[in-house]
Design a protein around this nucleic acid. Structure first.
Lengths: 223, 223
DNA sequence: ATTTCTATCAAGCACATGCTTGACAACGGC
DNA sequence: GCCGTTGTCAAGCATGTGCTTGATAGAAAT
């Protein structure tokens, strides 16, 4: 006597025709990635101001409670996004060609930046948001600092190499120059450069300034 | 003492001891400035994410309804802040000294940037926030674009002058170079440079690169 | 088959937040 | 003194929002 009654009241949609929702259950890892991907897209489009857990859940096709099961707090979700971004940057890092010259290495930096700008604008948008949030969030700040430090070290290596083989000017301050280059690339990310072509022109000008002014690689500097 | 009854019922706190609030009535212009100042400080500290009309009102010492009387929407308030920032930047703009050399003019840019960094960090913080918001807000975008365009034009003028009098290298692309300089300064604002000294070192390196390599101002480039 | 584990959902709680409403009071013009 | 204008306030409305609760169901272990 109690069977039908409880079943009818307990189970929503058992008697009715309510779109028989199929509950797809996924591994935590897979679902987490789906959620982070959704958050990534939302942040790229609307920034952190536009980050609403309900929206992310809807975009990921799940209930918001499920989202909070995988990422207890919004903060956790943001860290997940940040972590994914760092991973993608490190994974997609292009390798130097064999016996690549210093100038070629710089041009690779240029090409990489333009690649992200053209093909992966979402990554740059999220990056921009993270840097903007860094002053107020210690975890993000550390992550951004890590990325920038490693990146700068790469550039310093390249510059030192070019300086020693004579292709770059002998009086180059590699540390300072690396920061200029970093800032220039950041100028592209932060839309300080109005267009891709302006950025390219700027970067080429920079490379020109770095040059020693001689084609061959002799370290001579007499006249 | 006479009309106690109506007074007691009508005026909240007239009978009690509730801190006898004095309603200070100000001109719209004055009050608006107070509100914008409060918003300015809040945005500098917590960014746009932390902008709550109630908080601003409390900081300005007024009721939030009063705030909305002067700035009907949050958007209006933000535009007020942006407008004030632009005004301050333009008003505080340092004038070139009489017969100032091109190198001196660039050093003035450097000094100005460091001045804001050290003495007016709030202005730079708000600036940073505005640039971050620009991609999503047409009004802000226009304002930022206006500032950058004017600023860049200034630098281009300086560079052209230096190029023509021989103090800068003859093969200088002034437009591209100006954008590099702009990006470098933005690197300070956006905390791409870890410290003030790193920025100074970078800027000096930049100026070194721009130089023609000769002390006097003759346009000769033979060797 | 039973149990255990946990991913998922519908509903909701508690509070935050932009903005409104209606009344009041300071001020200037008459 | 009277009155229109408007700057100010207490209270509230409607909605948004992070996160919780308690129940349900898929899957694996036993």
């Amino acid at each position: 006597m109690s069977s039908t009654k409880t079943a009818a009241t307990r189970r929503p949609g058992a008697a009715g025709l309510k779109k028989a929702k199929v509950r797809t259950r996924l591994d935590a890892e897979v679902r987490s990635k789906m959620i982070v991907d959704a958050a990534f897209k939302t942040i790229a489009k609307d920034g952190f101001e536009g980050l609403r857990t309900r929206e992310i859940a809807k975009l990921a096709g799940i209930n918001s409670a499920t989202l909070h099961h995988h990422f207890p707090t919004k903060e956790d979700l943001i860290e997940g996004v940040a972590s994914q971004l760092e991973g993608r940057f490190r994974a997609e890092k292009t390798n130097p060609a064999e016996r690549e010259s210093a100038v070629d290495a710089l041009n690779r930096q240029l090409k990489d930046a333009i690649f992200y700008y053209m093909e992966q604008p979402e990554m740059l948008a999220v990056y921009r948001e993270l840097v903007g949030r860094a002053p107020r969030d210690p975890v993000i700040r550390k992550l951004v600092h890590r990325l920038h430090t490693d990146w700068q070290a790469d550039i310093v290596r390249t510059l030192n190499k070019g300086r020693h083989d004579g292709s770059f000017r002998a009086d180059l301050d590699s540390e300072a120059a690396a920061r200029i280059i970093l800032s220039t690339v950041w100028g592209l990310v932060a839309h300080i450069f109005p267009s891709r072509d302006d950025f390219t022109a700027g970067f080429h000008e920079l490379i020109k300034w770095l040059g020693s002014g001689q084609k061959n690689k002799r370290p001579a500097k007499t006249c």
